[in-house]
């Protein structure tokens, strides 16, 4: 009887863990904005941090951008191409658009450009609080990109083309 109950409980534990999908953390957006069937989750920095810290043997590419940032928009197709050619890489496009303009600017942009990568918004107005935590050398200019896998991480305050992205990714293959 006792053995049975332990077995029952153990199988429950395993099941519960197996049923988790996607990122290995509980998402906790401060707001979810929906329009045209597109959902955009807005995060404060505290709840955004888990996106930068997944130890799941996967390469993660986190790109900071905004719809009004010309060089950011210019490099987006390369991140999209990366996502298409390397489905094992997780790409997250972190929009720094004004939170009030998600419906007006961001979602229409996602729709118009049929972005396949996940887009979230970072709603944290005091950059001084979080920019140095992303990287001590980041001036706050965008575009900027973090590429990481487990404990290995690299930060780029620059624009990418596709070849440069592939090169950067190659540093993480081992």
């Amino acid at each position: 009887m006792r053995l049975l109950s332990v077995t029952l409980i153990l199988s429950f534990v395993l099941l519960a863990c197996d049923s988790e999908q996607g990122p290995s953390f509980n998402r906790n957006p401060k707001e979810v904005v929906s329009e045209f069937g597109i959902d955009v989750e807005a995060y404060d920095y505290e709840n955004f941090k888990p996106f930068l810290n997944q130890k799941d043997d996967q390469i993660h590419v986190i790109n900071f951008w905004a719809t009004w940032c010309v060089p950011c928009v210019a490099e987006l197709p390369y991140f999209e191409q990366l996502g298409a050619e390397y489905p094992e890489i997780e790409i997250v496009l972190v929009s720094l658009d004004f939170p009030k303009k998600i419906k007006e600017n961001l979602i229409p942009f996602i729709q118009k450009n049929t972005l396949k990568s996940e887009v979230i918004l970072l709603d944290e107005p005091d950059g001084n609080k979080w920019i140095p935590q992303i990287d001590p050398n980041w001036s706050g200019a965008i575009p900027a990109t973090i590429i990481y896998k487990n404990d290995k991480s690299k930060f780029y305050e620059q624009s990418f083309n596709f070849a440069e992205l592939e090169e950067a990714i190659a540093l993480f293959d081992n």
């Binding site: 009004w68 950059g127 920019i131 706050g140 200019a141």
Partner: peptide, 10 residues
């Protein structure tokens, strides 16, 4: 000194 998000210089 403080940091903030801004548009990169063109």
């Amino acid at each position: 000194s403080t940091l903030a998000i801004g548009c990169s210089i063109k």
